[in-house]
Design a protein around this nucleic acid. Structure first.
Lengths: 211, 211
DNA sequence: TCTTTTACTAGAATATTATTCTAATAGCGT
DNA sequence: ACGCTATTAGAATAATATTCTAGTAAAAGA
């Protein structure tokens, strides 16, 4: 067996620029449809029209309607995760980090309303393969976040808790709050979440996590 | 205009027992399908087979596939809300009430795994009419809960906060935790959530709400 | 530069699924 | 028993997703 490169050991090969563009435009079109028409109501033709391409292309790139939905979801999660990690790396106290998570969650949701809304709308129901990918992404993400928080736990600034409770305890409330905010928001008008509200959730998270 | 009775002013008339039974059996069948096959994958024929009835019946009672989904959702929400209110009425301190919300959320989810999973899976995307009904139900529910909590806020045992933040702050974390628990749970094996875990979330909620 | 190969696009043909429609049946009040 | 309405049934139709075949364009090889 020959190893060609150290990245993407299997089946990879730089895709053409046009290909990337087409995929992106399809995903963007699908998101617009999901946002404006509703997910279940959106048909392949709707996406086709919005992305201005043929059915052939859609199926060539994504295999099925579900495939488009999965890709969009995974894409969104990765954007979110990357942003969160970037933000956390710039925090250097326990308090700033915990509050940083809440603030980032809130700000990102407002900045990416349509995508955030889509990410909230569904999480089950994907193919086994997609669920696997998501599990891996989640595991990696949790590991990275954990690494950034470990020192504060070790130094006694943050409570020691079961690993799988940090995310719910820190971001559960803001997550639930933004979910309601999103479902009240109609597509067009861009309102935002008042800063004192955001800070209330940030403060509460810290109240729970501090020792 | 003639008013016939003080309940359900329009269009009501006691439905036959058989009708109720059929509707219930269709909803139960649909839930089994959603749980075992996945929501999007489930077809009308699947539900038909599971509920052992004709297409005609399905459409007579619910109008569309979406109609079935909406009814099941609303039904589930109402069961949940009623249970929560019942439970809260039996709590008579601020602490017991706040913790009671968390405990009920947790226990109900474990006891009604399939339904809980369905309720988590979707909330947008319903028809305008269903969304309206849901909004009303939610408003009533919030009002009832608020009534039960108001005395503790007034007496100074609980923090005074914006009305729409109580639910996220109290149940956001357990909600997020159970969501993950549900998505890890495959249909069959009935595991449960360890009591200390539940109490951790109950305690955290109280820590945030107490003055 | 020409040739070969592969990725991509297109859209008609097909398969699957949701919904409508017409007729038949069963319960219920009078 | 009679008539009324709610309910059931399933064939007919409509809407939608997916497959397939053929053509095009871009990269790789000579």
């Amino acid at each position: 067996m020959v190893i060609r490169s150290n990245k993407k050991p299997l089946s990879a090969k730089q895709p053409r620029a046009a290909t990337v563009a087409r995929r992106t435009s399809i995903l963007a079109g699908a998101l617009r449809c999901f946002d404006e028409l509703g997910i279940d109501v959106t048909t392949i033709s709707d996406i086709q029209r919005e992305a201005d391409c043929s059915v052939g292309s859609l199926y060539h790139h994504f295999g099925s309607k579900e495939g488009i939905a999965e890709e969009l979801f995974i894409d969104g999660i990765q954007q979110f995760n990357a942003g969160m990690i970037r933000k956390l790396k710039r925090c250097n106290t326990a308090e700033a980090s915990v509050k940083g998570v809440v603030r980032f969650y809130c700000d990102w949701t407002v900045r990416n309303r349509a995508l955030a809304s889509y990410l909230h709308s569904r999480d089950v129901d994907f193919s086994e393969e997609a669920r696997d990918r998501l599990r891996n992404i989640h595991r990696t993400y949790i590991f990275e976040v954990y690494t950034l928080f470990a020192r504060y736990v070790k130094s006694g600034e943050m409570r020691i808790l079961p690993l799988d409770t940090y995310v719910p305890l820190i971001s559960g409330p803001i997550q639930e709050y933004t979910r309601r905010w999103l479902s009240g928001q109609s597509e067009s008008r861009a309102s935002s979440i008042p800063k004192p509200m955001r800070e209330l959730f940030a403060g509460s998270a810290w109240k729970v996590m501090r020792t």
